[in-house]
Design a protein around this nucleic acid. Structure first.
Lengths: 231, 231
DNA sequence: TAGATTGTTAATCGATTAACAATC
DNA sequence: TAGATTGTTAATCGATTAACAATC
């Protein structure tokens, strides 16, 4: 029986990164990894790594580090990466198609099992092996397959409708790429992934750099210093 | 001369959302909006909205709210949405193509000006109006055009190389979709956008809901309650 | 043993939320 | 004026960082 520890959100979001690094380290033949090394490879502080990992496992060995195999297993268990979680996607446009074809999900045990759209030209065609179904079948199919994750890549104006259909069909988590706020019942998680937000923060950084009166490229610590600004 | 206020990162990331909502409200003919309304429409607390906005403007009128036109202008200025910022993208695969064709950037004054790839079959072809150029031209072209934002959608194994080229060519901000940590000199901002991380947090939420011993769909506050779990 | 690294507590830092006098 | 809503300060909350005894 899994313990239902409540875990800080920032910690939760670092977990998949740790997992990714562990997979890599295993591939290159490492057996143990220290919090310092894991921290370096994932871009986080070593104290933070230890703190994060202790939420789910206290099996690290002083002087040695963490056994990669075991830690990876713990993480996979904790994050639910074992159970080939299915998701349904609505909106087979450019972004939707890219997500369906994204190879990175498989490694985490995720699969976009069904794809829906309203476009007659898309319906019936195959998208990376999945048939595109009419959106009108979305509710019924999600319910029958017991799919709990909905991915929304439809235009903003249609997003709330689609969201409602998915939630009614039993979805408990919505990954929303439409630039609009979705209303959902209690207990349903919405994760907004507005790409413009990401780009905006970059543009802001650029703008900030332009302003200071430093003559062209005169860095304060030399241009090859290796510190980075954390996102 | 713009004030160089240092602004909390969470605040910065809410700004584009405010902006989006303001655009919408202007379209539907509103002139003023209260922090409460703006908060509701963007999904944040009203106190937080006021606090955020006061970082850049204290022009709200007690009893009335914020003048939408003016506030939007402030935000656009602050975020640098006016200057048609150009970005360069490397990796014209599925995800890269989707980004190039993403209509949402335009509204914020962003443009993916140039696209690079190593694939002979893609080079020379047009991608939503931009010619795909050989990656070997990336450095030279970015430098010549003075492009400061690089978008990386190449496979993880090639990401660091591409990043190095972009930084050498003068990039000051990197939007990294490759699941790997990038090393950059001081002063360069890297924003990681690992899609698998997003999906993982959703899967975790699902898993958490499955565990509690509640018989099927018995919510504690009724299934149509409108509270949401914040992401 | 000596050196390295853990798990955990305490100290610091930063962000959110609450509250309210000022003001339209 | 009465009602609404701001800007801002203080209180709360939560996460990160530092430090170190315990332990491999």
């Amino acid at each position: 029986m899994t313990r239902l520890v409540s875990i800080p959100k920032p910690t939760l979001e670092r977990m998949p990164v740790y997992y990714r690094v562990l997979m890599h380290c295993r591939e290159i033949g490492l057996q143990y990894i220290s919090s310092k090394d894991l921290g370096f490879r994932s871009g986080f502080d070593n104290a933070q790594v230890r703190k994060d990992l202790n939420h789910i496992w206290s099996g690290g060995r002083p002087g040695l580090g963490y056994e990669i195999e075991k830690l990876a297993e713990c993480l996979a268990d904790f994050l639910g990466l074992r159970n080939d979680t299915d998701a349904a996607l609505a909106g087979a446009g450019r972004l939707g198609s890219a997500l369906v074809g994204y190879p990175g999900f498989q490694r985490y045990g995720f699969q976009i099992a069904t794809v829906f759209d309203t476009d007659e030209n898309k319906i019936g065609k195959s998208l990376y092996g999945r048939p595109v179904m009419p959106l009108s079948k979305c509710g019924e199919l999600m319910e029958r397959l017991g799919i709990k994750i909905g991915i929304i890549t439809v235009p903003a104006a249609e997003a709330q409708d689609v969201c409602g259909i998915m939630v009614k069909a039993g979805a408990k988590a919505i990954w929303n790429f439409a630039p609009v706020r979705l209303e959902v019942p209690e207990g349903v998680l919405v994760r907004d992934e507005d790409l413009a937000v990401g780009l905006t923060t970059l543009a802001y950084h650029i703008k900030q750099q332009d302003v200071p009166g430093e003559s062209s490229a005169s860095g304060s610590k030399g241009p090859t210093d290796t510190r980075r600004i954390r996102t």
